[in-house]
Design a protein around this nucleic acid. Sequence first.
DNA 1: CACTTGCCTAAGCGCTTGCTCACCCGCAGG
DNA 2: CCTGCGGGTGAGCAAGCGCTTAGGCAAGTG
Lengths: 220, 220
Amino acid sequence: MGAAKETLGEEQPWAEVSPDAARRLLIAAVEAFAERGYHATTTRDIAGRAGMSPAALYIHYKTKEELLHRISRLGHEKALAVLRTAADGGGTAAERLADAVRSFVRWHAGHHMTARVVQYELDALGPEHRTEIVALRRKSDAAVREIINDGVRAGEFDVPDVPGTTLAVLSLCIDVARWFNTAGHRTPDEVGALYADLVLRMVGAEPGVAGAGAGAGVAG
Amino acid sequence: MGAAKETLGEEQPWAEVSPDAARRLLIAAVEAFAERGYHATTTRDIAGRAGMSPAALYIHYKTKEELLHRISRLGHEKALAVLRTAADGGGTAAERLADAVRSFVRWHAGHHMTARVVQYELDALGPEHRTEIVALRRKSDAAVREIINDGVRAGEFDVPDVPGTTLAVLSLCIDVARWFNTAGHRTPDEVGALYADLVLRMVGAEPGVAGAGAGAGVAG
DNA sequence: CACTTGCCTAAGCGCTTGCTCACCCGCAGG
DNA sequence: CCTGCGGGTGAGCAAGCGCTTAGGCAAGTG
């Protein structure tokens, strides 16, 4: 019952980071940044969590900011991939929107530590890194807006303000990273299902048109 | 056109803070915390923005954390007051919910600097101050949940999961503080109207039941 | 064996941080 | 005039910060 330590869901996804010491440092940084924020986290803290001396960090990363950049980029790429998989899947616009919201929310809840860093520590990045990440965000926005536009064109949705509604839908999903595991005892799957339903209502889709639809895991 | 510097809407609300120097410091702190975050803001920066020497801050506030606490408490109290005014107003549940969301969102957009600090710098508070603020938050949650429960009882709303939907509604409103004036050219009134409509859809209210409803200003 | 290479540490440098302290100034009361 | 007092400053302290440097140690290669 309840959310497991996330470690199970968090240790495999960073498999692309090597060598092993660099990955351990990155995981330690994700935890520290998520708990206390980037600026309140010291390099000594990160190294300590990874079981290393402070200097070890600088063998694998040039600066503390580079660590945040790596986390932010990888995290955004994964979240975007999850979104696009659903967006490019088959089915009606309602089905695709429900699928997108369900998996996007599931990712944010299941990886809420990573998601929190990715979504809320953006301002701590340097200017160039920041603009790079903002570009990735715009792609997420475009993916959602496209589905909603499709639904409007097909007559499935009733949406007076498409950009505004797109913004609200994404905002709703992203904010999951802030409150998840701070507020309650829901599983990522439950939150994903609830939010998919709420979003279908927001766009005025016919009730029950894309209701159930399980789906595999949280994905990497 | 567009959002004025917020200064107009921000300088009067802090009228309850005295003496004048203490208020200037507090306003400077709100700006700095909102722009860069609590931990990235230095006491020298705050004092500088207020046109004072670094030491002047400690005449009016014991610590930097006390400044954040003051901002957080006053901000939460104001936001809660705005919410309750709408919640305790007359009318159907749909009307009250729309009113609550509209004014709550309008406050978050109109005072987005204060709101950002209030909503996103909570973890920077010390333990006791933090729990005090969390208690205020629960009251906001209760206010919204009560309206939704009323609507369900009256048969106005169709809400399978009341706690979950309450959480989502508040989450949606709060996140306005994150993206407002970073994303676009909407006025607080426009965002409030859009969000009130979206929330009515989320709870399955009859369309057009609490549609227009202007309302005065953003309130203090 | 000697020598290189990759990973890691102990020590610490230069700087900034939150905060303090001794002192100063304008002004009201006597 | 002097005195006291609330509000202000300049200088600076102790601590902690991000990051560097010199060196150690185990494994791989001739």
